[in-house]
Structures are given as C-alpha cells and as structure tokens.
Design a protein around this nucleic acid. Structure first.
Lengths: 341, 341
DNA sequence: TTGTATGCGTTATCAT
DNA sequence: ATGATAACGCATACAA
C-alpha cells in the first residue's frame, strides 16, 4: 500500500473524468450518468481500494466534524461517563470528539480558542469552567456549550444543583440532623460552590446549620483528601452536636468514610455521610454512600445542543436565549446516612 | 465575527500577494521580504484577526495531526490515566487525540480503519485488542501501536505481566498461601488471560495451585461483579484450604472485599485478596488492596512510538522488528493480604 | 525583494 | 450523459 488512491486515479482507471467519479461515488448520479459508466467507476474504485480523503472533504465543506469536550479531570469516573454519552451522540452526527483535560493543561483556553478559530474544531462543550476561564472563552462563545457555568451570552446546560441540595437537606432533616459539617472540593468552580451554598441556604431556612468549624476543603486528589479528612473528623468529633457531613463529591465522601472506619467512628451510627455524583466508588465502599446522582446523560444533551448550534441543525431553537437547559438530579439513599443519634 | 479572514484577505489589506503573506507569517522570510513589507503584513493580519485554516494546512501537508487512542472502557480509571499520559505526549508533538471506547461500539475496527484510510487520523494506539480485532486491523497495521497484544507484524508495547504474576506468587507464597482462588474478568482479552495463566504457571512451578472450584469470571460491571463475587465467596468458604483470592482487576478485588465484609469474612485474616491496576479504588476500600501496579506512563510511551512511526520521527529505530517494548510492573503491598491462617 | 502559478483532493457549476 | 473548470485556503517552486 503505497500512495493511497485519489478520485483522479479512479477516473483514470475507469476512463472517465474526475467529476464523474465524484458524482457516482457520492450517489449524485440519477439519470445523469449511465448505469454502465457508473458501474465502471465503482469497479475501478473497488479495485484501487479507493477511500475519499476526509481532509479534502472538510476543506471543501468548511468544517472539521470534530468537537472537543473539556472536563476538569478525565480520571474522575463521572466525567468519563459523560464523555461516553457525548461521544455516542456525536457519532450519530458523524462527528468525532477530542478530549481536553483542563486540569492538566493550564493554557487550555488558549489552545481551545486557537483550534476553533483555525477551524480544526467545530466547537466544544466546556464542563464547569471557572469564572476566569469563561472570560477567556468569550471570543469563541458562538461555538460553545457551557455546562454549569457561564452567562446569558453562552449556550448553556445546567444541573439542578439547588434542588439536589434541597433533597439532601430534607433527607438529613428527616433523619433528625440539625448541625452538619461540610467537606468541600478546593477548586474555584461554580459547580462546587453552588453545592455548598445551596445546602447552607436550605438548612438556614429550615432551622439547621452548616457548622464552619467542621468544614474543610480538599483537592480531588486521594492523598491530600485523606489528610484533610483526618483533620475534618477530628473537628467533627470535637463538636458533639454535629451528626452529619456532606461532601462535594463521592471521592471525598469515600475518603472520609474510609478514614472514619480507620479511626473507629461508626458510619452512620455516629456520623452520616452524603456525597455527590453516584460514582461507582459510592457502591464499593462500606457503608455504601448516600449520594446525589448526577445524570451522565447530560453529556449527550450538551452534545446535542452543541451540534444544533455549530452545524445549524434544526434543534429546539431555544439556544442562546439566556435560559439554560436545566437537568434534574436525584438522591440515592444508601447505608452511609441514618438517624441522628 | 462573520467569515473568518483568510491569507488572501490579509494580502489584499496589506497590498501584497498571498504568497508574501504566507512567507512572512510562516517565518520563511529572511532576506526575502523587506522588514517594512513584513511589518505591514503582520499588522494587517492582526487587524483582521487572522488565524491560518488548519484544515487547509493539513490537506497541503498530507496529514491530520490527529491520532486515536482505543481502550476497552474509558470509565475504568486506569484507562483514563493512560489517556492523560498519551495526551501529554501527543500535545508536545502538536498532535491531538481522539478517544475510542471499544466497549461501546462494536464496529470500532471498521470505523478506525476507515478514518485512517481517509486520512482523518494519522494513526492509533490500540489497547489490549482481542485476537479477532487484531485480525480486522491488519489493513492499517503500519499506522498502529498495539499494547499488550498483536503479532510481529505490529509495532507493539507490552507490559511485563508474567513478572507481575511472579511477584504476586512470591508474595503469597511468602505468606504461607498454597491454594488460591481466582476472580477473573470475563473478556477475551489477552491481557486478562495472561494474568491468570502466568499466575497458574508460577504456582504450579512452586508447589502451589489455582483451585478451579474457587475460580469465577465476571464482567467489569459493578452489579454483575458483586453477584459473582457472592458465588465465589461461597465456593471459597467451602474449601477450607483456600486462603487467598487473586483478581484480574482492582475493581473486581474491591467488589470482592466489599462482599467479604458484608458476609463477615475477615480480610486478610481468613482470606487474602490481591488485585491488578493500583486504581484509586484500591486505596479507598478497607482494607486497602495489595495490587500489581500497572504504570500509566506506558500511555506516553506508546504514544511516543506511534508518533515516531506515523510521522517518521527519529525514534529509537527499534520498531516493527517483532520485539515489543516491554514495560515493568510492580507489586504494591497493602492491608488486603496477610499470613495464611 | 516580490508576485505568478500550481497543486493538495474534493465538490459543484457550468458547458458540451 | 459527461467533461472542463473553478473554487476551498494554503505553501512553494519559479519567474520577474
């Protein structure tokens, strides 16, 4: 297999012109090319093992049929499943997806902007960018869908985090918890800030309280999370009235219950623990985690919106009107939460 | 921002020819263009917010600067970290990576082949393909790097699984274990088959044994894995002489110890458990898992090889000679394994 | 020092 | 029914 065959090669072989080849192979013959000629062309194509050059096609059509998905950390299983859903949706539109890990590349906004402007990318889905990052993306706002972030200038998809926090609040209140600790993700992303803020708001409004002395932030990295979890548990055990800890993420929650079990603090007898995500780890640790399930389908949804926008597909027409699409979350009750003692 | 500016637009604005623009902006002026003209060009480019069209560039150069990474399941954290490493390496070469999830697309070999042949993709890394899949990829063998699979016709990267199994065997033997059970991944991939085969070989040669009656296979999916784990534990408790269970993957191992703890079977007092991967879950469950660490850096290595091959970079020159690059693994000893009772 | 012309592989608009 | 020919946006050998 030396040089791959071009449509010109096929034309030469079939004894016709290159444009005829294009017509036939693209199925645009229809009373325009005699069946015999068409057959000759198709045969020649098969003999030469012809495959149209996608790059040339894209140049002609002015699009790349490639989009990007930007997530904070690929290694977090939730984002991996988001990726899978988004891929599935994109593939149906004949589109490929490349992945950006915004955590492992500090100039990702620059890279993304350049790639969109150079037409390497038709557009991108950006997951939970920080305020600064959103600012850096304004130049290509037309080609983006932002998830859980952004202003009215962007096409957005949102998660109903506030409702999720409410579910958590109701759940804990029903179990008799009043004062709770918080284990947050140390990252300036709205998605995390909102989780905590919304819970605080709910508890404040219902006679409960997030106890600052029993709140810590940790990076989403295992060693650090466990260290901070140790500090947090010390603080909580010092406050006898604190009977539950809500975590920004299942990974933190898992690390927290692991440390609890090491220190001999029974979960949920002494302390209830609630996470976010419903990652697989939520079911692998003991006790299994009560958690706010974030639906991975939102990846597919965001992708659908993006393709509507950048490929001018029909779509719902509701884009860019300032109102983001809002996706519900749900509470999965498992063994890590129970009655307050 | 209407139609993006082209080099011709820049030329018109600067009052020069398009070729001059190309020369200047590509830095190929050097005693060929007067500094004044060059400046005019650069200014015009900035004013028009010019960005070269990457698709046209690729057509010209005959490559896409995009490669694919094919993994069995993205949602498995190990592969996510492989992806990150591969990405990092690719980016240094100005290359992008798109992801294939071979698990969620049954015609991925067809898609991959088509994309490579249509020049959308310069090449691909394929992780642990089955024998059938390897066969389907022969047509594009020149553009591939296979990890843990393939024949001499392919450029390959291998993990030293046999040495890993040996480490496990020594470790268990040192702790007094003789008869062990096996919890395997139900998937026809060499990488898993080898893990089990190699352990059997080692034990056979050293007076130990993998007990068939205490061996089960499960898919890498949580519900199913837990069900099968239940069966496995029943079988093991029936065989009093079986004191350890080796698992093809940390996910299975985690599910297994979880079920053990539910059934009140103490790990490692009654049963030692060993996994593969050193995934984050290995440290989140209690007891933490003893496991064979598979280095994620192999993702970067494979990518480096791929780029050497498809972009004709210098490289080590050792490709395609039938001898795969072989990467060592290591044993991480944690609390899930201990002395045989 | 700069501009003209050609080609990369396609599709599409014309003539014939 | 088929074939020239002109784009698409860029790089480059060659002419001026």
């Amino acid at each position: 297999m030396n040089r791959p065959a071009t449509s010109t090669d096929v034309a030469r072989r079939a004894g016709v012109s290159q444009s005829t080849v294009s017509l036939v192979l693209r199925g645009k013959d229809e009373g325009r090319v005699t069946p015999e000629t068409a057959d000759r062309v198709r045969r020649a194509a098969r003999e030469l093992d012809y495959e149209p050059n996608a790059v040339a096609l894209n140049l002609k059509r002015g699009r790349a049929d490639v989009v990007a998905l930007v997530v904070p950390t690929v290694t977090q299983p939730y984002f991996a499943s988001v990726l899978v859903e988004a891929e599935k949706e994109a593939r149906q539109a004949g589109c490929d997806v490349i992945l950006f890990d915004s955590g492992s590349d500090d100039d990702w906004t620059g890279r993304l902007t350049r790639m969109v402007r150079s037409r390497q990318l038709d557009g991108a889905i950006v997951w939970a960018p920080t305020v600064d990052e959103v600012g850096a993306l304004e130049a290509i706002s037309e080609s983006l869908v932002l998830v859980e972030a952004g202003s009215a200038a962007f096409n957005r998809v949102d998660l109903q985090i506030e409702e999720g926090a409410e579910l958590v609040g109701e759940h804990l209140r029903g179990l008799g918890h009043r004062r709770v600790g918080y284990f947050g993700v140390r990252a300036p992303r709205d998605t995390y800030l909102r989780r905590q803020r919304a819970l605080r708001a709910y508890l404040d409004a219902h006679g409960g309280e997030v106890v600052d002395a029993c709140s810590e932030d940790a990076p989403l990295e295992l060693d650090a999370a466990e260290r901070v979890a140790g500090r947090l548990i010390d603080a909580v055990l010092g406050e006898d009235t604190v009977t539950a800890v809500v975590c920004d993420d299942d990974l933190l929650a898992a690390a927290f219950v692991a440390v609890c079990s090491e220190r001999g603090t029974p979960v949920p007898a002494r302390l209830s623990v609630v996470g976010y995500g419903d990652l697989s780890v939520a079911r692998l640790v003991r006790p299994q985690l009560t958690t706010v399930k974030l639906p991975p389908e939102v990846g597919g949804l965001a992708m659908s919106r993006l393709l509507d926008a950048v490929h001018h597909r029909g779509g719902t027409g509701a884009h860019r009107n300032g109102t983001p699409l809002s996706v519900p979350v749900s509470l999965v009750e498992r063994a890590s939460s129970g009655p307050a003692r």
